[in-house]
Design a protein around this nucleic acid. Structure first.
Lengths: 410, 410
DNA sequence: GGATAATAATTCAATTTGATTTATTTATTG
DNA sequence: CAATAAATAAATCAAATTGAATTATTATCC
């Protein structure tokens, strides 16, 4: 193409892809309400004047919005703060009892159902162990579990349920071998619409998201999200998964698989290129233990109570750390994340050792031109997936989301 | 009309970790104006009714906005389209003469200055060859060049200049060796504020952005951006660089280095892990040619007129393709881009061969769990960096940018 | 120690902006 | 002439902003 050629017309694609729709006042209000709540959430408690300063909105606007939120029971006022010149400020904070939501985590060996309040505290919890996950069993567990838990709520509390969020690995049928399940059993997931199956049997809205992305959402809403406006997130479960936060918003991507991280190519111990998930996953540790003649069952009793397996655990930590360090470099070469957050289905002492090893491994890599991010431990912990599932209804209705401003286009 | 200025290019970044500010009506209007223009840009020409349907805004709102844009000379009406029932529709399109902007590309061997119109056509062009880039020389070239080019414009045209955008590699001082310049000469870039130096000597706003990100912006505004709402972009110049588009917006990241891509770890021919830029850069080809006793000078005469160097070129293409394929897999493991766009400072026949080789290389990789993106050739071509530079002022004032909706927080 | 000034938080009332709704006009085809 | 679609005018509505007032403090002067 010569210099003076006309417009650089790409393939003129008709109709298909258009940017988001227009914005209008109603949406502006909805957005500003979420902004106010997000600021309160982030800082614990803030006065109206604080919010006005932080949001750049006028004091009057903030006053009107916050009175409405208080009237709705979403915010509650604290004791006036005296000691400074001027009228005392009234700190407002989230009402923990304002909204409840159910979160479901579907795992290789177990499923969890939690009832979470508005500030991320798990109020009620059900746990089910299975040899491998099956659609019908899970629907039964979820629907009956929700029934059971709802019985423990007052009618008022039941009226404040925002919905159900399911955190699940995608394309379960691809993992029959690793899960240790017969292929034809796992194939049952292929044409099964879990979201629809649940929605048909309960009155609440149902949300479904990849388990890694969900856990990442939990970290955004209740963990390090307050400190970092963007980060890449790794959750090490039976399989590693992850998520991406950009501009303080969960970015799930066009296909919902943003932050998959599992397929990231990394160099293994032998120098050969492998997928990250084949190194930094708990099923690898399990295999390692079996090879050493050690019973891996303690891994599944409780994510928070592993025993120290000694050498094989240390080996797995070192290998995983080396792989994670490369994954972090890859990630920040695409997006200059300010932090990389690592969490997983293991006790905090394992997490600490893994983080330390990863920080060390990072230093051995070629960092020319790399903006090295903070490496931080997840603040949410092993239940991040279930909490993340439960936070999906909150994201949909209460958490900051720029898309709120735009019209939905068919 | 009020199109609020956005913060593009400038590295001025608030270190506040709060989400973006509140939204209000004025900003909504500014956003909707940009939305209308982006839709027109994307589709070439659209009637008011078309825009209303596509944006979801009411017909009346679109009517008001578009009349204002027409009155400002940004849109011009085409011939009424008859042949269908009802009043004929009047297609509106961008006025190519509505806005001009200067774009500067700083390269290892040369610098370019272009004057671009509103639809991405280069109207005027200056080119300078240097052995290596130096701050003072470049400022002189840019300032005097702008003076020269402005003399060729009418007073009216001069009044429509939106600004100057500079596309430059970051941290030039790190590349003294590869550039073949004395270290102390390149060190002059360390404390030199190019943006400020230019801004002090010309009356237009000056924007500065990484060259890869700039080229990516050109592709978004004038190339495949119309077909893909998100993509990762690779520009292969002396050094490879790139950029990231998310939600039809250029994402430059917190530090402005999003889409750096150069430091991506990939496995080289020997299986060892190397940075992408050490394989898929033109300086590697240059070295290869020298090793073969071939004069590499033809590489620098004109990016659009390479001669076919035969075997060494083919080797370089194969190696680069293998590395690029891995880079693409890494990228989509972080963000599920719908496309990976590859362009560079070479003729289109080289680009075609590179793309074909990359597609082939991609098939040899482990794609389990990977959402494979479309691999597409850049539509803008070798001048993408200069055009991208020139598009920076347009992004700041006229192109779609959700940040327009939010208040700037100190 | 009491009176007064300064300050900051909050809110009320009026204003402004801009999108939406409703109704009307215009230009075309069948 | 009926039907249809595009375009626009006028009225309406929602929500943010502006400016002024109110309130509850602390600071300071005498």
């Amino acid at each position: 193409m010569s210099l003076t050629d006309g417009p650089y017309g790409g393939p003129a694609q008709p109709d298909v892809i258009d940017p988001s729709g227009g914005a209008n006042q109603t949406r502006v209000r909805a957005y500003n309400e979420r902004l106010v709540m997000s600021l309160v959430r982030r800082h614990g408690s803030l006065s109206k004047a604080d919010i006005a300063r932080r949001s750049g909105l006028s004091a009057q606007t903030v006053s009107v919005i916050m009175r409405a939120l208080e009237a709705d029971g979403l915010l509650i006022r604290g004791a006036p703060v005296r000691g400074r010149v001027g009228q005392p400020s009234i700190p407002m904070r989230l009402n923990p009892d304002a909204v409840f939501s159910f979160g479901v985590k579907i795992g290789r060996r177990s499923a969890d159902l939690v009832l979470m309040d508005f500030v991320g505290t798990i109020r009620l919890h059900l746990h089910q162990i299975h040899t491998y996950p099956l659609p019908d069993d899970l629907v039964t567990f979820i629907v009956e579990g929700i029934g059971k838990l709802e019985q423990q709520l007052t009618p008022d509390q039941r009226g404040r349920i925002a919905g159900v969020g399911v955190a699940t690995p995608f394309e379960l049928w691809n993992w029959a071998e690793e899960v240790g399940a017969p292929r034809q059993e796992m194939d049952k997931w292929r044409d099964f619409d879990l979201q629809a199956a649940i929605a048909a049997r309960i009155p609440h809205p149902v949300f479904l998201q990849n388990d890694g992305t969900s856990a990442c959402g939990a970290e955004l809403a209740f963990g390090v999200g307050a400190s970092y406006p963007d980060f890449v997130y790794f959750y090490i479960g039976s399989f590693i998964g992850g998520g991406v936060v950009i501009n303080s918003a969960l970015f799930s991507g066009r296909t919902g698989t943003a932050g998959a991280v599992g397929p990231l190519p990394v160099a293994g111990k032998d120098g050969r290129s492998t997928q990250l998930l084949k190194i930094a996953s708990v099923f690898v540790l399990e295999k390692l233990l079996r090879e050493r003649g050690i019973d891996p069952e303690p891994l599944w009793y409780s994510a928070d109570d592993w025993i120290d397996f000694g050498e094989p655990l240390e080996t797995w930590i070192q290998d995983s750390a080396a792989a994670l360090a490369q994954a972090v470099v890859s990630a920040v070469s695409i997006i200059d994340f300010s932090a990389a957050v690592i969490d997983g289905g293991f006790p905090s002492w394992v997490r600490s050792r893994l983080l330390a090893a990863t920080r060390k491994a990072l230093k051995t890599l070629d960092l020319q031109g790399v903006t090295v991010p903070d490496l931080v431990e997840g603040a949410v912990g092993s239940h991040a997936r279930a909490i993340g599932g439960a936070s999906l209804p909150l994201f949909s209705r209460y958490l900051l989301d720029t898309n709120v401003l735009f019209k939905e286009l068919s």
